[in-house]
Design a protein around this nucleic acid. Sequence first.
DNA 1: CTTGCCGGATTGTTGAACAATCTCTACGGT
DNA 2: ACCGTAGAGATTGTTCAACAATCCGGCAAG
Lengths: 214, 214
Amino acid sequence: MYVNSGSTAERMAVILRDRITAGELTPGTRLIEEAMAEDLGVSRNTLREAFRLLTYERLLVYELNRGVFVRTLSERDVVELYRVRRMIEMAALRESGKPESGKFGKVADSVREAEKAAEEGRWHDVGTANMRFHRELVGLAGGERVEEFMAQILAELRLVFHVMKDPRRFHEPYIGRNRAVLAALLSGDIAGAEKLLREYLDDSERQLLAAYHG
Amino acid sequence: MYVNSGSTAERMAVILRDRITAGELTPGTRLIEEAMAEDLGVSRNTLREAFRLLTYERLLVYELNRGVFVRTLSERDVVELYRVRRMIEMAALRESGKPESGKFGKVADSVREAEKAAEEGRWHDVGTANMRFHRELVGLAGGERVEEFMAQILAELRLVFHVMKDPRRFHEPYIGRNRAVLAALLSGDIAGAEKLLREYLDDSERQLLAAYHG
DNA sequence: CTTGCCGGATTGTTGAACAATCTCTACGGT
DNA sequence: ACCGTAGAGATTGTTCAACAATCCGGCAAG
């Protein structure tokens, strides 16, 4: 057959990834190879390659002889992810340097994007824009590789977001805080931005962990 | 057949990974599926799964319809890798906190390990111990996840190490510097350790890049 | 209620097959 | 001699069907 972009396996991976981040496939769901291969119109072997890909991204989990499942994050996982975020994001801020012209353009874009999505009540998109905000933040000083790592971490966190019952209550408060961090950066107040961000992350983590005890 | 640890694909991945880090398979080498599958005594499909695994680790590179190759790092790659190292390792040092008892045990172990290997002229092992030193450093404050990321980064760097013609001249100078960093840490002089480490990384990067122009 | 065993379901792995694509060489035109 | 090109051979991308290994749920025995 014709190949447009990447191998068939990669295209299947894209489809599955989308279904997961959209919340269509929820954590804990088991993916049966034969049925799903049939569904997607590819062979079992090819589908397995796609599974591997997503396993590496930690969106799926393999259990030997039991199959693949959409990953379920434990409390420990969440704590670990936030630990990474604090380390990377804070480091990026510290190394972001003086505010030159246009430097924070992309960061500003992501803030506006979140605000727009909020106005229109698209809460899932607010979450997406929020994630982009943090990626752009890391992009200020991280380099491709770190950015990619960060994107990965955020993608995993999204697995938890879906467990939150009220997406609005969860995402909305952070929009203003994004803007506050941006403002601090624009005024050259790195230390202030750091402080805001740390509180931001602490609160967000607390909120997620609280959901585990609901 | 009987499985000891992990799937067949994973075991094949281990074998290949070892061959790569041992320098048996050098960057640029093309891996032909059929021949290699025959060699390892597994089916082509299974081997492809192993290839995928290593591709995700960035030790192999896929080129569509052309096959897999042992990855060759470009200068840009090296620069990027060192950029990550500086960010992560420095951040880890900063957050390592006060020197409590036993805190630096593993770091100290890795230094001794390197010294011992050097005495016995096992330069490849010196390189391994060196890598461990940096992993342990990150372990001081990083958390599992960051440690794993770091391990990944170091594994990639090893791809370049093999290009260095004289392993002794490359690895030996850093043994003493490892110890110096450790000493600074033990005396609670974080700032000093940071400075030493930064110079360390800068020198190491410069040395590698120089090799590209040889 | 627990333990152990059976049968059905699903995964792990294989081997063969074929189309799609790449690589290299030989050919012919200029 | 140079260059583009067509074709042959090699290798990958993907599929399919099969079977052994392993897991899961239920049933019978204690």
